[in-house]
Simulated assay, not measured.
Amino acid sequence: MTKPQTSQADELTSLFNRKAFLAELSGVLSQAKLSTHEVPFSVALIDIDRFYDINERYGHAGGDKILEAFSQIVQEMAGDDALSSRYGGDEFAIIFPNTEREQAFLRLEQIRIAASQREVVTTKGEHIPGIPVSAGVASFPIDGRSENELLRKSDQALYRAKVAGRDQVRLSYEERMVPKTSHFTQTQLERLSKLSEERSVSEADLLREAMDDLLTKYGVNKIES
């Protein structure tokens, strides 16, 4: 994962601070636009669910432990080319270079599952069983062509994740997650669409459920505390 210089780093988490993140986002966007074929990249906003309640129950020191633990998960799992930030308070932001939104969605799901499994021990010895997070993701150029538009679309997707019950990832372009046909056969896509209609459940939710089962089957979501 791309690491910030000291002046660019958030003091608590060692991730990029908000100002540095926005400067990096501007640079990534400019570079993407210069490319002949406009190389896609994705921007995600992640929020720790019910963080106010965590602070109320475990104190600000407990809240800081949660922030530190989640930042470690992001550093471990976002990817070598990712640029991650503590965007403000309990909100984090990630740039996934050369990554379309379906790929970013899957990577965020891995982060979400890992966080939900990460036990945190406070300085008082209290055990917090997991870190539930919600996330929204938008991609250049399909969702926006400016920093503000991409961040706005990511924030809207994050809001939908919160409204839908938290502890989930949402795409900026509503709930019909259409995977790349290079990853899935046409028959699989048609069956997915039919199942979505029959159960009145979005394709994204069905894929999220299937991915949870797959990662559980192979023990990928078992993260050491």
Rank of each mutant, 00 (worst) to 15 (best):
Y159M: 09
E174C: 07
P179K: 02
L189K: 06
R208A: 14
R176V: 15
D205P: 02
V201Y: 04
L171I: 09
L206I: 12
K162R: 09
S202V: 00
Q156I: 12
K153W: 10
G165C: 06
L158C: 00
V178D: 07
R166V: 02
A138W: 02
I142Q: 08
S139Q: 10
P179S: 03
R160N: 09
Q188L: 12
P129F: 05
A210S: 08
E198Y: 12
D155Y: 02
L171N: 02
R152P: 00
E147K: 10
S172N: 09
S134L: 04
E147L: 12
N148V: 10
F184V: 11
S196G: 06
R170T: 07
E147N: 11
P132L: 05
E174Q: 13
S182I: 13
A135K: 03
Y159C: 04
A157P: 03
S154I: 03
D205V: 05
H183G: 07
L206H: 09
R199M: 11
D205W: 01
S154Y: 02
E149G: 01
A161S: 11
R145K: 11
E175G: 13
S146F: 05
S134D: 02
S182L: 08
K194S: 11
K194Q: 13
L189W: 07
A210Y: 12
G165F: 07
N148A: 14
S196F: 05
A138R: 00
Q186A: 10
P132A: 06
A135R: 00
S154K: 00
S134Y: 05
K162G: 03
K162L: 05
Q168H: 08
K153A: 08
R160A: 13
A135S: 11
T185S: 15
